[in-house]
Amino acid sequence: MATTALDSEITQSDKYSILLPTYNERENLPIIIWLIIKYLDNSCYDYEVIIIDDGSPDGTLEVAKQLQKLYGSNKILLRPREKKLGLGTAYIHGMQHATGNFIIIMDSDLSHHPQFIPKFIELQKKHDYDLVSGTRYKDGGGVYGWDFKRKLISRGANFITQLLLRPNASDLTGSFRLYKKDILQKLIDSCVSKGYVFQMEMIIRARQLDYTIGEVPITFVDRVYGESKLGGSEILQFAKALLYLFATT
């Protein structure tokens, strides 16, 4: 009995800090916050949302302030920065203000649906994983809004990466993940790349450092508003990161 009581005490003290880096997401931010509230208030987990706006000219921060007023400053935290400084530093910045022992990172463009957060948490609890990653490539996961070419590039890149790096995770470039806070800190410290390949490096470093990884299939609805980007420069960045990690990890 004593152990059970202790276990539930530990469970109760778990807190999840959701980091939302934003840049010109005025349209999407209220929706994503509304969805987070909807799905997390239904579960009984303790959480906070930390909005890290990089000086969006479209007034994202002003909308964020309205949301904070509506939902309370214990739930919605604003940690804006002056200008666009990159994803890696946004996570470090957000983490410094996070009071949770778990960190969830996700995109604020609605491609990552908050309904999966409780699933991440359950899987993490069940196996005590160091990190849980959303995956578009496993049973039940998938994408919406990609044409044949985009899917082919994605599958091809994924195949080559699996072959060369054997990362123990099926979705390397996705950025919908849950981390133990100290693990995320160590991973960020050991990463060198910038931009979206940063996500790939994080999970490769996790393998290198022998952290345990769980996976939850997610549906990825690409850009309901606005343009999705996959150009030559992204592919080049990806290839460079792949070769760099191949030679160094």
Binding site: G142, V143, G145
Partner: peptide, 25 residues
């Protein structure tokens, strides 16, 4: 690669659900 490309799950339902939730939100 081709097999996985052709069988890549098109989450039509997820998109419909999201659009409905956006309106609701």
């Amino acid at each position: 690669v081709l097999y996985r490309t052709f069988t890549f799950n098109n989450c039509e339902e997820a998109a419909i659900q999201l659009k409905a939730e956006i309106l609701e939100a």
